[in-house]
Structure formats: C-alpha cells, structure tokens
C-alpha cells in the first residue's frame, strides 16, 4: 500500500511498525554514538561533580509557530532548565505521545528540529519512547524531555539563591514577551498578525560563557510561562530578599507592547522561551552585561533592577511615573480583557 503518512495505533504497539518508525524518524533525527539503539537504556559516561537532572513536558499549540516548533521548544526548554542551575547539559531523553492520525511528515519536521537544536547546543538525545493514543485522546502530540548535566561543586548554590544579597543587580538577556506574542499573532482565530518570532533557544552557551567570565553569578532562572515577574516573585520567596525593578529599564519589542495594549496583558507576565533572569554582584555587573551582550542571545541584555535591603518580603516595580506597586504571582492564566 502507498505510504499512509499518518500515525496509527500500530506505531505505538512495539512491533515491527514501531521499530521502523523509530529508526526512520527518531534515529535519523537524533543519531549519535550514545543513542540507545535496541537496548533498554542508554549507558553513558558520568561527568565530574554534582549531577543535575530535570524533566518537562510540552503541549504547546500551535505545534509550529514563527521562530520554532514543539520539537525545538522541548529540547531548548530542558537544556535551559539545566543551564540555569549552573550545569553543563549533556544528555536528553525525548518521549512522545501522539494522537492516532498525526501526520508523519509533521513528526519528521518536529524531530528534525529537535535534533538540530540539540546538536547546535552540543547536547545529545540518547533515549526516548513513543506511544500512540486513540484519536481525540491527546492534542496532536505531547512531548516530554528529561535531561542530565553536571556542575562543579562551587556552582551548586546558584539554584537555591543562597548567595543573593542586597546590592546585587538583576539582569535579563533581552526583550520580554516575544514568545507569547509570536504565538498569539500566529493563531488563526484571532485577527492579529506581526513579524515577531519566538525567542525559543537553548541558552547553555550564553550561560557557560557568562559563568566562565563571571563566576560570582548568584542566581539564574529561565523565565517561561508566567514571565519575568513570576521568576522575580519566586526569587523573592526563595531568597527572602527584597526586589526592585524599573519599568523603564525592561527591554521590550514594540510588537509586545502592541499586543499587551490590545488584549490588556501585562508584558511582565508574558511567556518567554529564551530569556533568563541573572543576579550578579554589583561590582561585576558591568562586565557581566558586556559578556551577555557579546553573545547572539544576549545582544539586548539589560540591567532591570536590584536586590534591596528594604522590603525583603516584596517584589516592587517602579513605574515610569515614579510611583510603585508590588508584583504578585499570577493566580491563573492572564485573560484578555475588554475593560
């Protein structure tokens, strides 16, 4: 029969058809010396120091958006989770759950994109799983990636924020809200469009170079769903230190400003996929900023605020007007407003 081009329940059943899919699609896209072939596990060389391990699942719609797709997102997202803890990401798993009837050509595009993203970041996808569920039981494709990396002992404090102290600067590596704006503009059901693309990207090389030149970095966290405001509120809780940021200092593209005006969204809470918050001691701020700006993913890096001695239980935004207000975590998703 002619190649059907769509996923069927047989592709997830573990037999010949499954094996054929794995070799023709997944191995093609991810092929490397460590990839688990027909064995049950990938056997890997351990790194030195502490091990970092993370996992994340990806259900984004639409699957293909300006600047990326779910494959690129799934790889970059997990690489970034490892990198912001100070670890060098090494190995990823890549597991998919697909809906019966999913297009194989779309699957090939997604896995190719995932493979390319991993390769460009110097990370290997070494194991994975494929399941197929009946039509209607999932939204096209869901992807889970788990990742391991290794970090030097002295960097282990980065993710606990234990080194964050008053006077430290708060930096971001570029414009905020790009990803969510790109997604909104690419949806068919809303009558908006723009040229903006998602900032979806692996940040491991940016972060590695930063740490090498500025080992005093006190904290890092990538700002995904919930935006930079959520990361700052989390940091405030984790570190017990006050935070103050200046609205004027936050880099933002015009498109993001436009979308936030149209729907009544707050850009501080809009999703990113290639941005992180960095806490750097005051004396190293200039050199850290310079270092970030040297990298393609940090060209628009900026200092947006500082850790304060006062108000340790608050995250404060100073508005353009000179007024201020407290940032709280979002309680749910931002909803578009008419009022």
């Amino acid at each position: 029969m002619k190649d059907f081009g769509k996923i069927t329940l047989a592709h997830g059943a573990g037999g010949d058809i499954s094996a054929e899919l794995i070799s023709s699609v997944f191995m093609q896209a991810f092929g490397n010396k460590n990839v688990q072939g027909s064995s049950d596990s990938a056997i890997l060389e351990p790194g030195m120091g502490k091990m970092a391990f993370t996992t994340d699942s990806y259900v984004v719609q639409p699957l293909f958006f300006p600047g990326g797709d779910i494959g690129k997102l799934a790889v970059a997202g997990t690489i970034n989770d490892l990198s912001v803890s100070g670890a060098i990401p090494l190995y990823l798993s890549f597991s998919v759950i697909m809906e019966e009837g999913f297009s194989i050509s779309d699957l090939k595009k997604i896995t190719k994109s995932a493979g390319e993203t991993a390769r460009s970041a110097g990370v290997q996808i070494v194991t994975g799983d494929t399941k197929v569920v009946e039509k209607g039981s999932c939204d096209g494709i869901f992807i889970n990636t788990s990742g391991v990396g290794f970090l030097k002992e002295e960097l282990a404090g980065i993710s606990t924020a234990s080194r964050v102290k008053p006077g430290d600067s708060i930096l971001v590596n570029g414009t905020i809200g790009d990803h969510e704006t790109a997604l909104l503009c690419s949806r068919k059901d809303i009558p908006v469009s723009s040229e903006i693309i998602s900032d979806c990207a692996p940040l491991n090389s940016l972060i590695r170079e930063l740490i090498e030149s500025c080992p005093s970095v006190a904290f890092m966290r990538d700002a995904t769903r919930g935006g930079i405001a959520t990361v700052l509120c989390e940091l405030n809780e984790l570190s017990g230190r006050g935070i103050e940021i200046k609205e004027d200092a936050i880099p933002m593209k015009e498109e993001v400003s436009g979308i936030s005006g149209i729907f009544g969204y707050d850009p501080l809470f809009m999703a990113n996929e290639g941005k992180a918050i960095f806490i750097i001691p005051k004396e190293d701020t200039e050199s850290a900023l310079g270092q970030l700006r040297k990298h393609p993913m940090g060209k628009e890096a900026a200092v947006i605020g500082r850790i304060t001695k006062d108000n340790p239980d608050r995250t404060i935004l100073r508005t353009r007007a000179g007024g201020s207000h407290i940032l709280h975590r979002l309680s749910g998703m931002q909803l578009p407003r008419i009022c």
């Binding site: 503009c185 908006v192 469009s193 436009g258 005006g261």
Partner: peptide
C-alpha cells in the same frame, strides 16, 4: 497597525 502589530478591526 498598532505598534508593529496588525489588527483587523
């Protein structure tokens, strides 16, 4: 055109 976003109204 609203700040580089195109909206159909």
């Amino acid at each position: 055109r609203i700040r580089k976003v195109l909206l159909e109204a």
